[in-house]
Write a protein that binds this DNA or RNA. Structure first.
Lengths: 198, 198, 198, 198
DNA sequence: AATGAATGAGTTTTCATTCAT
DNA sequence: AATGAATGAAAACTCATTCAT
């Protein structure tokens, strides 16, 4: 029944461990997740965790890394340069929020968690910064006639911040992906208090 | 005779402890802040901490509570019903970002920290939710002719999210309060990619 | 009956802990002595050990320090400059071997142990070096007409080495202090294969 | 096909392992030497180590054994009964200190190390005791007219102790073999403070 | 013959928390 | 009112040792 004590090739065990770690970190936060409980969830012994990942911090970093890749991957379609900028932004929003919707624990635990963890802020920053950069470029290229002094960089920060806040609600199941995409798209182009006309 | 063992009135002691606690929590995060270091910083003995606050969690909760009050207080001027809605929003933004600017550690440590801490998310939610509600009302009352289906609630979430992201940059000293207020005000009314005319 | 769980003033506990530590280190060696067993032997909890001494290494260092002081103290009478050099050497030998005889575990465990422990060799070296220096001076001042090229420093090393080897036998109860003193004294002045007359 | 997995005859493997073990034990001490690092240094897998030696302790014992043999071998020329006793002693000293000089790590790690290790003291004692016995016999046979009550056994202990202390300095590169031999030879026959005449 | 995969059992260390004075 | 003294409980991490292939 148990069936989990077989000798597995390294690559398989690695994923198995990461799956467990993501789940436990996600449920308890970095500090309150114990290596014991992660090992238990992965049905392996603690030494394996250390053999494969070296330390709790490195394990967490590996979690962030893997989830970060998945995250970037989910958004990358937006990079298609053939699409008009605004379509690219929609694609990015869809990719982003769709990812959050389908990997709630990845989002909640790793993205949100990691930001609080001094030591990992920078690593998470990578994914986030790439998102901000992407957003910045899209805003820039889609704005024909910017006001003088427009700082697209901070605008991107703000928009991504808005996106994250909305993503939390998506992850919490409070609103659905489509509505969220719609809202953020509108926010980007017409402001929240959106004027009356299209 | 020696020094340091003054009998202080309860209220004074309480603030003294909270000041120390806020500082230590802010510097180290909830988990890495030890009761020992808080007691030391407050120049009192650990048992006093327990006598007044019962447990580490309750102490942290008290910190959040006090800082939350200050936070709400800083924003409350925005509630002035005599101002036109858009002015109210500017007042709120100014209050909010000004507070962050001047109480960076309160912001970084308690607001950002607490959100990561499972157990305190809801409590922080209070201040945050009040901010969101306020924003929602302002948006609502300032929008004469909303598009059908407009969900001001989620809009407020998004705007506050944007505000928080920008606030982090303010707290980090990367942009100044005025620029941030300007940006968010514009975001709210005309969208990030804002067209050229007012 | 137990009677060991009282609140004791710091100074008392410190000695109590050191006593236990010396004994356990002495019986098991540094590595095989666990903080658990030391705490148990001292009838206190492990955290006390850490509160007072910080780490296992520091605890061991403290043991060495205390025993080293006692050791030096036992030998110091030899420093009396009023005695003729040879009497001083006898006094030193008597102090040294007498100490070993009466503090067998201190000797075996701390002196012998510590020398093997990379990290502590230098600290033990202190006591030992002082002994060697002392010996060197005595040899020097008691030799009226040294052969040219005589290196008293290495001679002292050799004599102390002989003393330590003999001390081990004293500690092991194989020979008594007086015989040992006699032997070493003779060794120093007439060589092991000592000629026939005084 | 790949590389490194040769089938080697047992005897070769054994030496290979012992070489690695001696080196690692010598560098780190018994406790801080891990079976992992020994296996790595020997370029074989841990199970091989266990297959050949059964346990870490047995492996260490084997190291001591082999080095002990080499040690005794280095000194054995001294046993030549054709030489006059004093020449035999010089030969022994030369063999002993020459060995230490050329096999510093064997000396430092195995001889000194092992003495600290409860469990191995007796085994090291073997080589040492043989040395002491040899010394004793030489002293005995070279002393024509001993003082009554002379205990050659303890004298040998003392001389060997002196030899070990000097050997440490030789191993440390502080003095050279010839000077050391000279000193110890003089010590044995005329005492450290030896006057100028025979 | 040889090893990658796996673990049981311990170790040091750190806290939040509470007595006894 | 206030604290020095003390600890239970747990966490990260390591290592000698052994299967299953």
């Amino acid at each position: 029944m148990a069936g989990g004590t077989k000798r597995l090739p390294r690559a398989v065990r690695e994923q198995q461990m990461l799956d467990a770690a993501v789940e436990v970190f996600s449920d308890n936060g970095f500090h309150d997740a114990s290596m014991d409980s992660i090992a238990a969830k992965a049905s392996i012994s603690k030494p394996m965790l250390y053999l494969y990942y070296g330390s709790k911090e490195e394990l967490f970093a590996s979690c962030i890394h893997r989830e970060g890749l998945r995250f970037v991957e989910a958004i990358s379609p937006a990079g298609d340069p053939d699409l008009p900028p605004r379509e690219q932004l929609r694609a990015a929003l869809t990719g982003f929020l769709g990812f959050v919707d389908q990997h709630r624990s990845s989002w909640m635990v790793l993205y949100r968690q990691a930001i609080g963890q001094q030591a990992f802020a920078s690593q998470v920053g990578n994914s986030r910064d790439r998102l901000i950069e992407l957003t910045e470029k899209l805003l820039e290229s889609s704005t024909k006639d910017p006001e003088p002094g427009t700082d697209f960089s901070i605008m991107a920060v703000a928009l991504v911040g808005a996106g994250e806040a909305v993503a939390d609600r998506v992850a919490g199941g409070e609103i659905d992906v489509d509505a969220a995409v719609e809202l953020l798209d509108k926010l980007a182009w017409r402001g929240l208090a959106g004027g009356k006309k299209k």
